[in-house]
Write a protein that binds this DNA or RNA. Structure first.
Lengths: 347, 347
DNA sequence: ATCGGGCCTTGCATCGATGCAAACGAACAC
DNA sequence: GTGTTCGTTTGCATCGATGCAAGGCCCGAT
């Protein structure tokens, strides 16, 4: 009834515990006879490894932790799915933590709060805790997802946010839009970068300053996108002819607000977002978006974790000054859908 | 540099390891002096518990596993979020597994594949493995989410699917709809139940059989909802006046297909779904749905897990025949939005 | 002064698996 | 026949924390 241990298997097979361990872990020098005998007992008793015990002894748990702000946000859910899939291919189990964007929680994670249970940590932070923590390197494998971490302290994987925003806005410009709203500015590093991309694209297109409009929000949610656009529509300024939302959730909220006010998309206002969440293909009208390659992000992130555990496993490393952590920019595509298709001849 | 252990703290504070353990775990009989001293060493050295080691000794890991088919499906993502939140309140960490709806994987989980790392398992299965596995009770805490498990073998938490479907369809009938399509029949138990609810509501409303229409799909995804409705519209049968989708993802797909074909919602066809995912409030038009209370589901599920570990911890239990496992029906609400609002006088 | 009891503190064994290195036996060479 | 080597198997200590129960100590009661 109770758990089957190696010892039970050993007794059943008439060998030592160590031999069972050797069979289980694929140690080569085991005679075919013994191996077969042990294997039979293994199957017969239904042995299952206790990963905790192994982890205790060997120092590796086979888990990695993934911390995202809100699992219910589509982008993070899809990211988590990609990470779980990639980890599964490597025989790794993923432990998902939701930080709720609480910088206190994020700090605790950077501080190593999950170290003891996970071989490595993937952190997708909203509010990268600033210098005070960023100053010292963690003593465990850590990879940041999606954000530039302050000061290149941590390796990071994600799209180039500036380029992504520039691409999206560039596309809107090409469609003939000029008075383009940037929706999503908030305190985050990510927000700053996407705003910068917007600036670059607007400058490059020589759009007059009077047409620039950066609308701040608190969170990148449908709700906030809706509220911000509704407020914009109720204001007395001239209507924009495009909305560039910093993520698709905001864009979805924007679409809803526009729809509710009878503004036509894309005829009156074009809309584009970032993330290309699955939902984007089903909005009204379907949403143009920037699609990061989540599988690549997940794969690279895990590879970077492995690299790190490789090095940090050898603490005897001579004190070579650690180079700035890798900052990998993964590919993205512009997916054009109806929400931004060319609407009229020029402006 | 290396990990700080209790032993290190003990030496630093000049007490025994056991005393440190006592302080950490909040054992009451520790003198204030000692406690303070130990606490100081704890802080100074930055001690962090090794949960693996504790788990090994105490038999409890502080983890539970949550297995869902696809984390990227909004409903499951929102469910996972609720579970993580509820677990967090109890100091429990959640390990998320994605089964991809693979019944082989689900079976392995029922078989105890996660037992060694988790104190309990929450399984949201698509294809409940049938009798062969369902026959024997697992020897670890397990709670099924959202499905009736075959034969009451496992405790289960979720809404009453029959009632939920009946409520949704009843609402459509009240709005004046008669020719109502049930969208989502597939092999799953869940699908059967929602179909049954549809049947009951149609019968109760004395809708003539000619108006009944059950459309099968493979998965409950936006894509399948879109494809099925598109096919329906292209067919030569008379148009339905309502679509009852077995979940919101299907409904979203249906809305897109209707929109693409120029069919007006709700004027021409009303639509309702189940799950009330966040996206539902932002579709075009906003989607009427059945809203399960995810927080209640999560709370009850965790409570049931705890109950089970309570009993199964005492294996000395005299052989009282185990009663049929608890089948808890959690509350749900009908959330009426524009997609189903009354469109015309009567049928 | 002595004893009993409560409060703190401690040592030791232990959870299940693996690292390490010794022990064992057989095969081979000289 | 003896020594060496290689392949296989084993015993023991160990990872870090907790269960258990004993050991000290102090205080009040008799």
């Amino acid at each position: 009834m109770a758990r089957v241990r190696m010892r039970d298997v050993a007794e059943h097979a008439g060998v030592s515990v160590r031999t069972v361990s050797n069979v289980v872990s694929g140690y080569p020098h085991v005679s075919p006879d013994t191996r077969a005998k042990v294997q039979r007992s293994l199957d017969e008793l239904g042995y299952r490894m206790d990963y905790l015990a192994r982890g205790l002894r060997s120092g590796r748990t086979g888990f990695i932790a993934l911390a995202v702000p809100y699992l219910a946000e589509p982008y993070f859910a899809e990211l988590a799915q990609a990470v779980i899939r990639a980890a599964g291919r490597r025989g790794i189990t993923v432990l998902v933590e939701a930080t709720a964007g609480d910088s206190e929680v994020e700090r605790r994670i950077l501080d190593g709060g999950l170290t003891n249970v996970a071989d490595g940590v993937l952190l997708s932070a909203l509010t990268v805790p600033a210098a005070d923590v960023g100053a010292r390197k963690p003593d465990f494998p850590l990879v940041m997802l999606g954000e530039h971490s302050v000061g290149d302290q941590f390796p990071r994987v994600g799209i180039d946010n500036v380029a992504a925003a520039r691409t999206a806005v560039g596309h809107l410009v090409e469609q003939g839009c000029r008075r383009i709203v940037a929706l999503g500015q908030n305190g985050s590093e990510n927000g700053r970068q996407r705003t910068e991309g917007y600036r670059q694209a607007m400058s490059a297109a020589r759009v007059r300053r009077v047409n620039w409009l950066v609308v701040p929000v608190e969170d990148w949610t449908r709700e906030q996108g809706f509220a911000a656009v509704r407020e914009l529509l109720e204001g007395d300024g001239p209507l924009p002819d495009a909305v560039f939302a910093f993520n698709d959730a905001l864009a979805v909220g924007a679409l809803r607000a526009l729809d509710a006010s009878g503004v036509r998309v894309p005829e009156d206002v074009a809309v584009a977002g970032i993330d290309d969440i699955q939902e984007a293909a089903y909005t009204h009208p379907p949403l143009t978006s920037i699609a990061p390659d989540l599988d690549v992000i997940a794969e690279r992130a895990l590879a970077l974790l492995e690299e790190q555990s490789g090095t940090s496993a050898g603490p005897g490393e001579p004190g070579a000054p650690v180079a700035a952590a890798a900052q990998e920019a993964t590919p993205f595509r512009l997916v054009v859908r109806a929400s931004s298709r060319w609407r009229s001849a020029g402006r």
